[in-house]
Nucleic acid binder design. Structure first.
Lengths: 112, 112
DNA sequence: GACTATACCTCGCGGGACGAGGTATGGAAA
DNA sequence: TTTCCATACCTCGTCCCGCGAGGTATAGTC
């Protein structure tokens, strides 16, 4: 129960969301915008990805919601839990291992 | 109507298989072994991933099979088509864009 | 009164990664 | 000789999850 790894496949959305939240509390819409800017448009989570992902992560106890009213609109800020932090470390390590692997394959020019 | 991109998600198996075959003809079993070695165990395609992937790519015209009998065993060598080569370039570019994006997110220490 | 930006949400589709299981051969070990 | 491992192919079912499309509501602008 819980903490099943993305095997080969990326699980990129979960990873990057956790990483952003590790920096500071953010709400969904903000996450989407920030992601675009920081990644320079190369990463953009549609809302059909983002919100379900947030809910799933909340359900798994990786983050905790803090709803607030700001100018008549509801924002749900999310905060990383300790569990979420551990998860982040794990996913980061996985990502680095596997992207290094891919890089090695891509960089194979016959020899090496 | 082929050539739909893996959106955010990696599509790593397809990418790395194409990359290996760009170097030389290989057969399935060989691909699996080579992948492990070159990526230093960080990438390993189970046969439940590999063979279906090969068939799918063949169906899309990305590679062409060349069955051979070697010491009583059947080996199906695969060769990249022109279409497969184009696909490889495309996926490679995608991968680089998106892994750079992830790297940027991971490397964000608040400022920058 | 229409449109854009903000801010949340859900549903259903489809693709694909995966484990488990299955067939068959050749050679080495027991 | 039978058992076992490596080689070499295969399929099936599941489950996850990325995604687009669509939906609600408010605040401010044109």
């Amino acid at each position: 129960m819980g903490e099943r790894d993305p095997t080969l496949m990326a699980g990129v959305p979960e990873l990057v969301v956790l990483r952003l939240l590790a920096e500071r509390e953010m709400y969904g819409y903000e996450i989407a915008r920030t992601l675009k800017v920081v990644s320079r448009e190369t990463l953009s989570l549609g809302e059909g990805v983002l919100y379900p992902a947030l809910h799933a992560m909340e359900a798994r106890g990786l983050l905790r919601p803090h709803p607030r009213q700001v100018e008549g609109r509801t924002r749900i800020y999310y905060q990383l839990t300790a569990r979420g932090r551990r998860r982040l470390e794990r996913l980061t390590a996985n990502w680095q291992r596997m992207s290094a692997g891919v890089a090695r394959i891509l960089g194979t020019s016959g020899h090496e």
